[in-house]
Design a protein around this nucleic acid. Sequence first.
RNA 1: GGCCCGUUGGAGAAGUGGCUUAACUCACAUGCCUUUCACGCAUGCACUCAUGGGUUCGAAUCCCGUACGGGUCACCA
Length: 557
Amino acid sequence: MHTIEELAELIFPDVKLTIADLDKKYPERNLPEGAEVTRFAPSPTGFLHTGSLFTSMVSSKVANQSGGVFFMRLEDTDQKREIEGSGDELITQMKTFGIIPDEGYLGTSKEKGQYGPYTQSQRRDIYRVCIKELMLKGRAYPCFCTAEELDLLRQTQTANRVVPGYYGEYAKCRYLTIDEAYDNIVKGLPYVIRFKSNGNHMNFIKVHDEIRGDLRLPENDQDIVIMKGDGLPTYHFAHACDDHFMHSTVITRGEEWIASWPIHIELFSALGFKAPKYAHLPVIMKLDEGNKRKLSKRKDPEAAVSYFIEQGYPAEGLIKYLMTIANSNFEEWLIANPKEDISNFKFAFNKMSLDGALFDIQKVAYICKETLAYYPKEKIAAEAKKWAEVYSKDLLDLINRDYKKFEDILNIERETEKPRKDYEKYSDILDKIKFFYQDEYLKLLEENKNNLPFPNIPKEDIISIIEDFKINNDYSLDESTWFNSLKELGVKHGFAESFKIYKKDKESYKGHVGDVASIIRVSLTTSSQSPNLYAILHILTKEEINARFDKILELLK
RNA sequence: GGCCCGUUGGAGAAGUGGCUUAACUCACAUGCCUUUCACGCAUGCACUCAUGGGUUCGAAUCCCGUACGGGUCACCA
């Protein structure tokens, strides 16, 4: 005859501590009233998902704005799915978006804080203490059922239309005597440890979600496994232990966890822990053939945060976008406080919508254009260069030829009340600035020489305007005087000085200033569209300009 | 299939019984401005809040049913 103490000792011979000992080791945090402790707890199974960035952004925001602590914990209990090095990747990617944990896992064998270790595979001993104690209390037991048995169980349950799972009368190993269990273990039978639930799924419990308000959920009655065959805990159990000892005050996680929430509640209570608050965030969705579905890393490039980094979206822009999804009043706040740091925005759980927003790349584009437009030239140039160093040799080459010139190009119509919105991401820059560089211009000209978009004017007029401009343009004039001189040049050649005048009396003119400007523009850029001509004229050197005119004249003649 | 959650325009949404002839932002459309483009400005875009019923003098807002969408039912998190 064996006792439960002997069984527990057989399974956990090395465990000498108790939960009370651990509580002493991980005391309550000394934080001001209202400070929230939140966490981001990803599994190292791949690169950062856009949805995870969203969750971590909200978590860190909640902690920061309340004067609390945001920590990171690595949930690496599933060794099969673990991808080498992705923990580090997660951290660096979060960092580029400005999400930096105050505490916890900071990369392989790097961590900070008094509540560690912050990597679950290193917390085995803690879980074992808790499980042993649960066993002693009669709330946990070893289960020897095989995968096949479990499978069969589920099949017969579904066939008989009863709720599937390991619970009540179906929880076979729950009814093993202590001696039977003891002998099985001595025999070396593989086993897991299950939680012994006292619940009944016909009962309901009332819970409060920070986002959804009061919810009514069926009580848990499943004897879920808490320790797997490999000795590592399952998510549910690790969540209860870790967030207790680390003193999380609000759990922010995806809404897919709502269904298992009752498990967590029973676990907390069985362990004698006070349950934290919960906020189940909506999941970011995507429209796929008329149906909403989760953003998927496999199908949607924008589901991986790395996509935005590679494309060169300003990190700040994506964060702003995610914040508009999180709290829609953020947009109004941004408009009202354009100069303010976004960390001053007050996030509120109760302003969050309940169903998952469709990811809107167009809005991301708009917000990013907007934020890049208001960067000073020094900043956008530096950021673009940083990006190009990793992702675009071609752009980097142009930048390195003459950094000041690069800045000047980016600065065209930038330092004004309403700056141009040319770029949504750094990868947009290259094609738009190529023509500023003589060799690139020549390439463009070669490609387009047969269909240069000159206005519909006789060739001779185009030629004479170019020749006149080439000889007589005065580069020292200020912009409005210069433009007047362009008008005069046009008039001299029979062009109206404005579109209005031309429209009134089309017969008397060959065209209008717009056409004159367009001739110069096309000659210099090979395109009918460009930023401000005056600015272009002053970024290119006079030699470059004249060489371009010569090329064009050669082509036209 | 059981259980849970949700449903306001193409997208994000405000709205919590009369102030709503449904804000605001993106997208889209048209027009204006203009040396092109970009910007900016103006206007338009839900005869109605998934749907049917009920409560009420009055409902997007409260109640019930239906439909649709999402989540979940693992030794994955």
